[in-house]
């Protein structure tokens, strides 16, 4: 649904995006992570046919972003970083206006707007001028605007950044539902917990280059090493057990727990447990140590910095 190959953008001599390759199949969410100025917005603007790539190509919803720009724009719903609403309009007028630009009849715009405004809790404020809206309300209305023409692809830049926790939850649930409806979503966020919750895939961008791109767990494994498991025992343990199965490495002992790194959990975890118990250790718990996307992101950014410094 979204494919980019060697996507590059120069502003005069400044290289903003450097040979970006992306692939987001239909019905998946790709979370694009990166520091400010990493090239996320420029990438999104190329995918929405606002900026022309200096090199490379991209297709969105099957349309080429350069050759079929109109079709791309008609197929994409975009939530921009700055919502840019018109303060003297009401939300009803605003959505009618954008509906007209997507060539929706007035009655159809009204029909589509109503459930969306209700979903995001804006129904009661529909006659209010947008200048009186709070930041969160504006952000939700901008999201409604992006959904008005029922696009198969959504490009969302920081969709919950200005929202209270309740509104943010509503939006996250809505995004999950949209993915369930088969929409392809590219999400730029600095909220890594949110990214982890919603992402099928993740791409980390730094200085215009994609450092890593893939399924969330694959990315974590690549950046943080094999999965880590913690075994807790009925007694305190101080040293590494002998005769560990191949592919399992001991990391450390923590009071009544031992920490291991396992290359292939499906095959090696049963052997590991058997080995521990055969040594007389009474296992009372065995669980994966969760590693956040945030750790992976920081690791990626740090490694990139080291590579650059080297």
């Amino acid at each position: 649904m979204i494919v980019a190959q060697g996507l590059t953008k120069y502003f005069d001599t400044f290289l903003a995006v450097d040979h970006v390759d992306l692939q987001v199949p239909q019905g998946e969410v790709l979370v694009l992570l990166g520091k400010n100025g990493a090239g996320k917005t420029t990438t999104v603007r190329m995918l929405t046919s606002i900026l022309r790539p200096s090199n490379g190509w991209a297709k969105v919803a099957g349309y080429d972003v350069v050759e079929q720009a109109d079709q791309v724009r008609a197929s994409v719903g975009v939530l921009t970083e700055h919502h840019g609403l018109y303060g003297r309009m009401t939300s009803e007028e605003y959505l009618q206006f954008f509906g007209s630009l997507y060539r929706l009849p007035r009655s159809e715009s009204a029909r589509r707007a109503k459930p969306l405004l209700e979903l995001f809790g804006l129904d009661e404020a529909r006659k209010k001028r947008l200048g009186e809206y709070s930041k969160g309300m504006r952000q939700k209305l901008a999201l409604v605007r992006a959904l008005m023409h029922d696009p198969p692809v959504l490009l969302l830049d920081e969709p919950t950044s200005a929202m209270d926790p309740e509104s943010a939850r509503t939006v996250r649930d809505a995004i999950a539902r949209l993915r369930g409806q088969g929409r392809t979503i590219l999400l730029c966020t600095h909220n890594l917990a949110e990214g982890e919750e919603l992402a099928d895939r993740v791409a980390i961008i730094q200085a215009g280059r994609i450092l890593i791109h893939g399924a969330v767990e694959d990315v974590k494994r690549k950046l943080l090493g094999p999965v880590i498991y913690e075994a807790r025992f009925a007694q305190a343990v101080t040293q590494a057990p002998a005769g560990l199965p191949a592919g399992v490495s001991f990391i450390e002992a923590r009071g009544d727990a031992l920490i291991f790194q396992v290359e292939n959990p499906t095959e090696q975890n049963p052997d590991l447990l058997q080995s521990l118990m055969s040594q007389g250790l009474r296992v009372i718990a065995f669980q994966e140590v969760s590693r956040s996307l945030e750790q992976a992101f920081l690791e990626a950014v740090r490694n990139h910095g080291e590579v650059q410094n080297a």
Binding site: I50, Q71, A74, V78, T80, H82, G84, L101, R145
Partner: peptide, 17 residues
Amino acid sequence: GEKERSSIEPLLNTPLK
């Protein structure tokens, strides 16, 4: 003004030529 308030970007994202 639209450029400054960033309200032009949503317009540019529509199929408007």
